[in-house]
């Protein structure tokens, strides 16, 4: 019983991290039809900026805010300086190029901090609770709260704010939106900033629980792909749902078959969804064929 309960807790925490990375994919895809492979890189950047701030003695909340703003600003600047001119013309080439960006970020972090796993000092309370036989740490709760808050905030922004409505308009029909006076370049810049910021949060949430190393964190960014395909490319809420679902399946595989088959099943599932339901569980069908 306690194994299952612990697996459920692990699922919720891991799923939250996938969800946090995934919302960034969804935002970028909606805004510019770009599928960013660099989300793992930004997550990595977030984790290590946060690590520097915290080991430098900054308290938790300011460190989170500073990390988020720094990475968001960096992401937006990278977009404006490097991608903006090409992205408007060729979304696909931009997507391919983000593979390179991910590698550059990974190498930069690797040179600066080394490749050995680093663990954070305890930044949040080390207290743990026992719920239905499972041990729940405060860090777990923080990670889940972060994910739920971010997704709820983004959904509200997209539904009700001016910028959110503009983003929806661009996602719906970019050409028409531009004709109605929406600057698609500005929308894309905002989307890159938001994606960077949420990826940084994902990095923080991940580093609260596990030691961080460049390769491991970047892999989380790649494992978010099955999650977003499950949830539906371009659906913000679906990214979180897909993340939770994927984490649940992964834990089931780990317990049932063996840890060696987790990646295989995750990506086989993604392939299956690509084949039979490319819009995912929550996506809209028309964004499918490219």
């Amino acid at each position: 019983m306690s194994v299952v309960a612990q697996a459920v807790v692990g699922t919720i925490v891991t799923g939250s991290v996938y969800g946090l990375v995934g919302v960034g994919f969804a935002l970028l895809f909606r805004a510019s039809k770009v599928l960013s492979f660099a989300q793992g890189g930004f997550m990595l950047l977030g984790a290590f900026v946060f690590y520097s701030l915290v080991t430098g003695g900054r308290p938790f909340l300011p460190a989170v805010l500073v990390t988020m703003i720094t990475v968001a600003a960096f992401s937006a600047v990278v977009y404006v300086l490097i991608f903006a001119r090409v992205a408007a013309r060729e979304a696909f080439a931009t997507s391919v190029a983000t593979i390179g960006l991910a590698g550059v970020l990974q190498a930069a972090v690797g040179i600066r901090y080394g490749t050995a796993p680093l663990s954070l000092p305890d930044v949040v309370s080390t207290r743990a609770f026992r719920i239905l036989g499972a041990v729940v740490q405060v860090a777990d709760i923080v990670a889940v709260v972060m994910a739920v808050t971010v997704v709820a905030a983004l959904v509200l922004i997209l539904r009700h704010s001016q910028i959110g409505l503009r983003m929806n308009a661009v996602a719906d029909n970019a050409t028409l939106a531009v004709h109605l006076g929406i600057s698609s370049a500005r929308i894309a810049t905002v989307a890159w900033a938001l994606a960077g910021g949420t990826a940084a949060l994902a990095g923080i949430a991940f580093s609260l629980r596990s030691a961080v190393d460049p390769v491991g964190v970047a892999n989380i960014g790649l494992l978010a792909f099955p999650a977003i395909i499950l949830g539906g490319l371009g659906s913000v809420g679906g990214a979180l749902a897909g993340g939770l679902l994927l984490a649940g399946i992964q834990n089931a595989v780990r317990i049932g078959i063996g840890a060696g088959w987790v990646d295989f099943v995750s990506f086989a599932l993604m392939l299956g969804f690509l084949f039979f339901r490319p819009s995912g569980l929550f996506g809209k069908a028309e964004v499918v064929r490219l």
């Binding site: 490097i82 190029a97 593979i99 390179g100 991910a102 590698g103 550059v104 990974q106 690797g110």
Partner: peptide
Amino acid sequence: GLFNLLFL
């Protein structure tokens, strides 16, 4: 990192 930058 260099190769990735070149690729980009």
